[in-house]
Amino acid sequence: MRKSRVIRLALLGTVGLVGLAGCDNNDPLAGHDVLRDQKECASRPDADACRTALADARAQHVQTAPRFTSREQCEAEFGVSNCGTPSQVLSGNDAFSSAALAGDPNSPTAQPGPQPMQPQAQSSSGGIFMPMLMGYMMGRTLGGGLGAQPLYRDPSNTAYSGGRPLGQLSANRFPDAPKASPLAVSRGGFGRTGSAITSSAGS
């Protein structure tokens, strides 16, 4: 009765490894300009339109970012310390710093200066939590004007716009992308017994 069964392995063996190697050809942002912040508009010929588009996208960010009712849920998707309340994500690691805004009459009213997010270890719920902004993807609007979309990414380097995953970013896409300040994580609290015994933990 079991003679016809065939065992397939997904990860193990020589067959399973094919196709798992990293592949940069599918970068979801390929063909788009990606800006980290408004300062980067200055070097563009369409600097003014660029600033306007980013300001719109930033407003859009608060409206369309994935929303969670607890910090835990948000962090489960976007990484520890990479989430905040709407006011935190606008003032935190977003690139609209007071310096960038100072000479920009088109900028929306903003909190003065970046306020580093306070890591919150304890459970926090009852509000709205959303991921920190990573940057903006530039494109053309239907009318032919310059448009921008807010971008997020999770710790596995998947890019999102709105709540929609765009795909895996290539590793070198944002080598210096702003990193959320990580919570103090301690490691090594498990494993002591096993390493002392140096035999199988199995039986």
Binding site: E72, A76, G79, V80, A121, V185, R187, G191, G194, A201
Partner: peptide
């Protein structure tokens, strides 16, 4: 097993993603 992190609220992996369900080939009594 020694790479498992604790951030004060939850266990996390190396990418700081929460560990919510964990298969452990490591005895409970250890």
């Amino acid at each position: 097993i020694d790479e498992i992190g604790w951030n004060g609220a939850r266990f996390v992996d190396q990418a700081a993603k929460p560990i919510t369900t964990l298969f452990k080939l490591y005895p409970w009594e250890w």
